[in-house]
Structures are given as structure tokens and as C-alpha cells.
């Protein structure tokens, strides 16, 4: 079942907020996981694990390093669902 971009962003923001304690409203498409959201590699892998679960997709480890921003992750999940 495919989600809209907005649904993916909201779902992902929920996961990131849960992991980081940040306000969900601050987790925007242009935010960098490392520079803006201060997410380390273990936290990133935790987010990926939860995102795979939530959206029913597979995000390979070698792909994770390409996901610099929240928008990159939304795009990847969207294409993986297609």
C-alpha cells in the first residue's frame, strides 16, 4: 500500500521525534539528519528499522548513507513502495 509524500513525512517525523525528543513540527523535508537533527549512526539505524516496519519497505544499509535529509528518506521510501 503506497503512502502519499505527506503521509510518509508525518510517519517518519513521528519516528524521528520518538527517537530524538525533537518536536515533530521541526522535522521538515530540508532538515539534515546529522547537521540539523544531530542524529548519530546508531540512532539513524534505529530510525531506519522503525521506518522499514512502518512503511513496509526495505532500506538497504548501503542506501542509508545517501539519505542526508528527511526529504531524501521520504523520496526513497516513496520509490521503494511504488
Amino acid at each position: 500500500m503506497a503512502n502519499t509524500d505527506q503521509e510518509i513525512l508525518e510517519g517518519l517525523a513521528e519516528i524521528v521525534a520518538e527517537e530524538t525528543g525533537l518536536d515533530q513540527a521541526d522535522i521538515l523535508l530540508e532538515k539534515s539528519f546529522t547537521d540539523d537533527l544531530d542524529i548519530d549512526s546508531l540512532s539513524m539505524m534505529t530510525i531506519v528499522t522503525h521506518a522499514e516496519d512502518k512503511f513496509g519497505v526495505r532500506i538497504p544499509d548501503e542506501e542509508v548513507k545517501n539519505l542526508a535529509t528527511v526529504g531524501d528518506a521520504v523520496s526513497f521510501i516513496k520509490s521503494a513502495q511504488a
Binding site: 546508531l42 540512532s43 539505524m45 534505529t46 528499522t49 522499514e52 516496519d53
Partner: peptide, 10 residues
């Protein structure tokens, strides 16, 4: 294994 959380060991 794919569903295990990365923070499990620490």
C-alpha cells in the same frame, strides 16, 4: 535479525 534494534547491545 533485520527487525532487531541497533541499540540492543548498549
Amino acid at each position: 535479525a533485520r527487525r532487531m534494534l541497533p541499540m540492543t547491545v548498549p
